[in-house]
Amino acid sequence: MKRSTTLLLLPGLLIIIILLIYPALRMFIPTFTSGNSLFENYRLFFSSSNNLKVIYRTLMIAVATTLVTLGLGLPTAYWISRLNGNWRKLVSIIVLFPILTNAVVRNFAWIMILGKNGVINNFLMKIHLIDTPLTLLYTNLAIIIGAVYLFLPIMITSLVSSFSQLNSEIEEAAEVLGARPVVVFFKVILPQVSLGIFTGSILVFVGALTAYTTPQLLGGNKNMVLATLLQQQSITLGNWTSASVIAIVLTVIAVVTMFVLNKVSKMLDRRNNLEIKN
């Protein structure tokens, strides 16, 4: 490499290597070396039924969030991609605004809605549907609702960009040939936006998997996920090794999911392209 190239890349590389990769390794290596055997710390971690519950809850919340955002996001994105002009702009602003607004604010809104004296309970009591408040806050459901609210705009954004590239002529051609709208949607449109679906799902899944603020505010102390457990083990309890193990487990799950979904999406994309060509 030329000297000038090296000079331009060096500051960034040094910062990432010294200030990110090195600290990550320092966290990573002791989880293997500090135990009696190589995987001692991991065996301990996975042998606790509580930890397994946390992992299960984390994954369940991430999966549920992804599915719900997909279900709500697909029709919404399809609709937005067909809007033009000022409507489109207004809607884009409404979708973008929450993405750029602090997560604390967005979760706080749901505390007010789901709380014991919250909007929902107040309303239900006023119309005498219930007489004691429901427990909505500090449940898994609350975390899922909060996460859906947090990540739905991101899902919509990545779906809209792939719906917008969609060639509406193919869709019309299918209809001219007599396909029912539902069939057209599932057989013609969906395969073409599979890339957007995967991009959105990766962002949402990994985001929900690693989110801290939402489970912290809406889940309470009982409904721990990996991120809040990590915070508890490290800051509250000072249990470094155990926190490191959690950090590694979380990272591995996130990276592996990203990698797998990426691969699958590339495969599907290639198949679709081939199908269209043939």
């Binding site: 200030l19 990110l20 990769i21 600290p23 990550a24 966290m27 690693t210 490290s234 950090a247 996130a254």
Partner: peptide, 21 residues
């Protein structure tokens, strides 16, 4: 390498930096 930070969960970055730095 430059996109690396986006790969590691933020809370893990925070924890690792706290420990080392």
């Amino acid at each position: 390498i430059f996109l690396n930070p986006a790969l590691i969960p933020e809370i893990v970055i925070g924890f690792a930096l706290y420990q080392t730095l």
